[in-house]
Structures are given as C-alpha cells and as structure tokens.
Amino acid sequence: MSVLTIERKVLEKNDDVARRNRELFAQHKLFVINLVSSPGSGKTSLLEQTLKHLNGSLRIAVVEGDVQTDFDAQRVAKFNVPVVQIVTNGGCHLEAKLVHDALANFDLKKVDLLVIENVGNLVCPANYDLGEAMKVVVVSTTEGDDKPLKYPGMFHHASVLIVNKIDLVPYVNSNPEVIKQNALRINPALKIFETSCTTTKGIPEWCEWLRSQTKVRDGSK
C-alpha cells in the first residue's frame, strides 16, 4: 500500500467561488448579509420590514433561496427592489456558485446592501460560505429557548442573532433572555437584536445598525 497525503478542504471549490464573490463585493463596496434560520422563523417578514424601513435611504438588492416556489421573491418585489429567486429543487442550502450566477442579474454599482435569504435550514447552510460579510441568524420565540444549544454549528458561524416574534412572548412559553444566554454560550461575540415584524418593535434599531455597517464600507457613495 502507498499513501498519498492530500490535506485538502472538501468544500474548497465552494470556498474558491465564495472568495471570488467576496472580491466582487469589495470591488463594488457592497455590504452583504446571509440571512439564515430554521423554516418559519420570519426571515422574509424581517426582510420586508427592513426594506420598508431602509428603502429610499439605501439601495438594496435581494437574493432569495427556497427549495420551491418564487413566493418570497414576489413578496420582496413589491418593494421595488431588484430580486432574484434561486429555487434549489430539494437542495437544503445555497452554494457560492448559485449566488455568483444570480449576481449577473444585478447592476452591482447601484447596490449598497445585498441580502441573501438562505433556504430555511439551521444545519447545512452553516458550512457554505457565500462570500458574505456575515451570517445573521434568526430565532423566533415560538421555536423553543434551547434552539441555540440544539443547533450550535450555525451559531458558531453567525455574527448577529435576531430574536424574532418578540410580540408572542405573552402567549408562548418563551423567555428571550434564555434564548440570548444560550446563544452567547455558543458564541459570546454575537450582536443581538429583538424584533417583532407585527408591532415593528426593534426594527428601527436593527435597521440603524445595518445602515451603520453599510456606511462603514461605503464612505464614497
């Protein structure tokens, strides 16, 4: 028997395309977030509220990832922002190549903020770098306060946690403080927001932060 030593990352092909995406984003001074959560946490509702709040002051483009249908792209298009729907046909996550191909549909010079809404899945999207500046993970109060401890992988990779559906706390057995504590045990560097897309509580704070991040990278526009 002879042994060839390889030591290569299995997903290096994806990482290479992600690097190219990242270079493209830097070249156009684009701030890019990758929105991840389990299905039904309210990613699209949060995006709708974000667009409502920031449209006009920031030029936003959206990539929607879903296993099937273009329902989310239709919801987003109502805000008159450029949007591309990626349908994965069963695929459980977005890959860098899919995002790269989608970018051809945008005039990146005219975009300040790109939001990539990943497929609802708290496991697989953690491993696929898309070239984003950061992952934003959404957890809703209806999912169980122990969610971060049950799916630590995603929280290791995220920079921001949004605790959504905060208006439902009186009706469900949830304590947002416990969600936050659990998440911080996995990743103490998480920046945390609490939001409700029904009452819009916390939306202005989240949007202000997003705007500040976009500005930092985009002093010239």
Partner: peptide
C-alpha cells in the same frame, strides 16, 4: 458545541478544532 469554558466559566475562548471537513490522504 458550547464555547464557554466549562472549567472557569470564561467566555474568552477560541475554537481549536471540530469544524474540519478535509480529505487527509488516499
């Protein structure tokens, strides 16, 4: 998956391993 130090309780820790996915040899 917890990054908090289970010995002294500190949050100042760094991840050393556990996220690898690598072809080592053939």
């Amino acid at each position: 998956g917890v990054t908090q130090c289970s010995s002294c309780g500190s949050f100042k820790t760094k991840i050393i391993s556990g996220r690898e996915l690598q072809v080592k040899d053939i």
